[in-house]
Design a protein around this nucleic acid. Sequence first.
DNA 1: CATGTTAATATCATTTTGATAGTGACTTCA
DNA 2: TGAAGTCACTATCAAAATGATATTAACATG
Lengths: 143, 143
Amino acid sequence: MKNLSDASCPIARGLTCVGDAWSMLILRDASLGLTRFDEFRKSLGIAPTILTRRLATLTEEGLLEKRRYSERPPRDEYVLTAAGRDFLPVLILLGAWGRRYRGEGRLARYIDAETGAEIEPVAVDAVTGAKIGTRPIRVATPE
Amino acid sequence: MKNLSDASCPIARGLTCVGDAWSMLILRDASLGLTRFDEFRKSLGIAPTILTRRLATLTEEGLLEKRRYSERPPRDEYVLTAAGRDFLPVLILLGAWGRRYRGEGRLARYIDAETGAEIEPVAVDAVTGAKIGTRPIRVATPE
DNA sequence: CATGTTAATATCATTTTGATAGTGACTTCA
DNA sequence: TGAAGTCACTATCAAAATGATATTAACATG
């Protein structure tokens, strides 16, 4: 896929850093607390070559941060940065879509850890409070 | 990437249908009103082979619908289904992330077509009203 | 009838993916 | 002390996906 990073569309910009399934699944797992290479590998069943590359890209892009947790032997883990943590809403909303339209069979549920209630994610416009998709949207292109 | 469609995770399920950048960009353009092969091709600069495949997949997956708009010559266009329209919030939220963390230079803005105000998308839990990401989340796995 | 439009295919080189095995620097167990 | 295990990778190589470019089929238009 060509370079989208200079596109004026913020969606395209977002996709340049996290535009593939593995990266999103890594971010999902990281949001659930996984940090180590082998944790990701086992959780995802991903080939180590791909995992190495994806972790490196996510680190370069500033969504993950390498942190040394052992000097001997040298061992690094990957923790979310602020940008990485802020990606969670996108994933949760994608999950809500998946549940709605691909929800056959038993599915994992996302629960508010304090109240124990299932989360019902919706995207709203913070200005009007309206659910996104219920009002027509226009694009204002710069210049 | 292996088959995620039987995973119990709704995010993974979602990614099986729309887990790549081109598909998301096609959905973005479709949400803005594009319907025809050549409109997508010109807007995205995508190779026609790839576009054909992506449109076919999105159609199979039920996010787009082929509609004949001319019998002679036979011509089809692609319109969003309900599932396809409901994907917009995911894209808008991804765009909000992109604006926040990759927003250098002039960027397109998404505007409420009626009020003219810029949209500020946030994901909230419809139950508690809390912004997603501000409270800890747990996963409940089935069985 | 020459040209243009439009939704594609065909071809083929390049790139990416993914499976599998191996490595280096340790620690732990017997 | 030696064998086995852990962990974060890298090497290798086959298979699949991507992408650039040219071409086609079925018309409409001038």
